[in-house]
Design a protein around this nucleic acid. Sequence first.
DNA 1: AACTCGGGGCA
DNA 2: TGCCCAGAGTT
Length: 213
Amino acid sequence: MNKEEIKTVLEILKKNYPDAKSELSFKNPFELLIATIMAAQSTDRQVNIITKKLFELYPSPEDMVKLSEEELGKLIKSSGFYRNKSKNILKACEILLKEHQGEVPKTREELVKLPGVGRKTANVVISNVFGQDAIAVDTHVFRVTNRIGIVKAKTVEATEEELMKKIPKDLWSEAHHWFILHGRRVCKARKPLCEICELRQYCIYNRKLRNES
DNA sequence: AACTCGGGGCA
DNA sequence: TGCCCAGAGTT
């Protein structure tokens, strides 16, 4: 897909998802880290509801480590996978205190060492609160961008690199949410709704479908 | 590569 | 009701 087509695709997405932005607008690194760990296989909205209360009561790793797994699990239950997450979050808090003076590390290499933190979560943190160049690629971003043909990549890492080259930097954050929303509502994993998709005429995947029929 | 974790969203 | 999932870790 050439530059002009990508530009057109991004314009269509912008038009269709005008208010696409994360509900997790934490500027505090610790809060963003914990909220993002919780966001795995959950929704920003759900995590936003939980964390409002949670961070009032436990605003720092010092406060949060005082919780037991059971107590934290209860508080974050509605984000799903709460046993894993509460265990990981408490362990991560311990590591922050022991090895990082209670601060959130600023590199992806250090972040992914924390339990519950993978490449996607690390990228969210370094790009949103540490001003580093990174695009968080989740399952939707990976599927949609590859399916449409904005990128051709076999791995998440390669997808990140290509996206950073092909999407203007000032659109990275918005585009992330465009792809997610489009992936959920239209460009679904199992049965994509190509017949109602406004990207149809630019989409590599749909071109193949049309050629086959 | 295939599994597990889980309550919530949505048809 | 039943299906699917805004990741990460383990085997």
